[in-house]
Design a protein around this nucleic acid. Structure first.
Length: 481
DNA sequence: CTATGGCACGGATT
DNA sequence: AATCCGTGCCATAG
């Protein structure tokens, strides 16, 4: 009986192991963090060891004992990136966050943080009695500049009408990171759109697309979206291009490469999918200096199975063992799967950074068209593993841009950038056929019809509508190269 | 008649 | 098995 149940549970573990490895791999770092926190709270067999810091640079350390920043091997071959797993907290500053820590007093006075920056802008227009409300709002922003608490809560706390809070919010949302303190990415987009519409032309139905089709939009279901709005798919592409070019769903982040691909069924898809799961930085200024790749860990400290619990389990009477055993199994499983997840991510990124080094350093034009399938044979894993590891994850590049990891596998992006260049440079509006010829000269043989598709993807109007050197869409957030 | 967009089909990808 | 992407054919606008 005992043997039987044991073998049964073992088999159960291995199949569950597979299933969980896959789901963990699909998860964003932020999602994984939520799961771990939940498990930690509910499962006594799990234990979170205190974080360790590197003695010299004070940086938090993950599982390993050597700090990759301090003992950075400068002599490493430039082609081989340095890849390591790093706890999450180190990433809150999206760019330039790797300097040594600054003492608190200096930081407070020298570097103005987002809440103060916004407050200074709105202060003149703010009624004195609303200052407390504004402060309340601004102290409850998350790292993306979105409002982390419900508006009604603020009203209740200050014993004022909802409308008064809304008034304050209206002011704040129009301050510099436009859309700051919105309660969702969707709302942030709408505010930005509204502000932008005062000075620039907006493609028709854009607001409607955001309002009604936000989840279709973020999952790039353009055909479905077109049907929903009753417009053509190319108009939809134009809208999507306009949004990614000019709007930013996370006001506190200066750059947003592209709307990431889907996340899940849509239950709580908005709050976390943009967070970079991998950060790539340069170890030096030179082109030849090796890249540093950090896989963001969902938590700081070391997660492990509590050894005391394991001991106690041996001694406890058979009464409660069932519950304990399942807890123990669960804990083991989780730890193991997380290790496996990290391992997969490290290997994946290692290979990716080698293959796409040119793109990472020099931009979209140098993107190599590679497929997930080709990587899967190199890494000796199943294709679906790569798919899962890549889907719904974001990567931060050395230039600060955050792009979906899927961009590394985009087969047409380099052609599209070539197309953009051609259109920018040529003085006389080229027809699609002519553009196709130019592209073929550069080594990209594409059909005329495809040129049209790429064009509309980039939000570029057809030849007869872009008369003399008039570039289609107003540049709002110009990305510096 | 030319330039484009829509629709649909087949192959690749997930 | 479902979905995405490049392409060809046809209709329509200029």
């Amino acid at each position: 009986m005992l043997l039987q149940s044991q073998s049964h549970s073992l088999r159960h573990i291995t199949t569950a192991h597979l299933a969980q490895t896959m789901t963990l791999l699909e998860m964003t770092t932020a999602e994984l963090r939520q799961k771990i926190e939940k498990d930690l709270a509910s499962n006594p067999a799990l234990e979170l060891l205190e974080e360790r810091r590197c003695p010299t640079c004070k940086r938090r350390l993950a599982g390993g004992s050597t700090c990759p920043f301090c003992s950075r091997p400068n002599s490493a071959s430039p082609d081989e990136p340095i890849v390591f797993v790093s706890p999450r907290e180190d990433f809150h500053t999206s760019s330039g966050g790797y300097e040594n820590e600054i003492p608190d007093e200096i930081q407070a006075s020298a570097i103005e943080d987002l809440p103060h920056y916004v407050l200074r802008q709105v202060a003149p227009e703010l009624k004195p009695q609303d200052r407390a409300i504004a402060a309340h709002i601004l102290t409850n922003l998350d790292e993306d500049g979105l409002l982390a608490i419900p508006v009604i809560e603020i009203a209740r706390y200050h014993h004022v009408l909802l409308s008064r809070v809304e008034e304050v919010l209206y002011l704040i949302r129009r301050a510099d990171p436009i859309g700051v303190a919105s309660s969702s990415p969707q709302e942030a987009l709408l505010v930005q759109l509204d502000v932008l519409s005062e000075s620039h032309p907006i493609p028709p139905k854009t607001a409607e697309a955001i309002q009604k089709g936000m989840n279709l939009l973020s999952r790039r279901r353009y055909t479905d979206l077109a049907r929903l709005l009753g417009i053509s798919t190319s108009d939809t592409h134009r809208i999507a291009a306009f949004i990614t070019k000019n709007l930013n769903p996370f006001p506190a982040r200066s750059h947003w490469g592209d709307i990431t691909s889907s996340n899940d069924g849509g239950s709580q898809a908005e709050n976390s999918y943009h967070y970079p799961d991998v950060i790539i930085s340069k170890s030096g200024e030179a082109d030849s200096s090796p890249l540093i790749v950090e896989i963001a860990m969902p938590i700081s400290g070391t997660l492990r199975v509590n050894p005391l619990f394991k001991e106690a389990f041996q001694q406890v009477s058979t009464e409660k063992t069932d519950q304990w055993k399942s807890d123990l199994d669960q804990a083991n499983l989780l730890v193991k799967c997380i290790q496996q997840r990290n391992h997969t991510m490290v290997r994946l990124m290692q290979r990716l950074t080698v293959l796409q080094r040119e793109y990472i350093l020099h931009g979209e034009a140098h993107l190599q068209p590679i497929t997930r399938a080709s990587l899967s044979v190199e890494l000796q894993v199943h294709e679906s593993t790569i798919s899962r590891a890549v889907s719904s994850k974001a990567v931060q590049l050395p230039n600060g841009h955050i792009v979906p990891m899927a961009i590394f596998f985009d087969r047409s992006l380099h052609i599209r950038t070539a197309l953009k260049q051609i259109i920018e440079q040529e003085p006389h509006p080229l027809s699609d056929t002519e553009i196709g010829e130019r592209l073929a000269e550069q080594g990209f043989p594409v059909a005329r019809r495809t040129v049209a598709k790429y064009r509309s993807m980039e939000g570029i109007l057809p030849a007869h509508l872009r008369k003399p050197a008039n570039h289609s869409i107003p540049q709002f957030a110009v990305d510096a190269i």
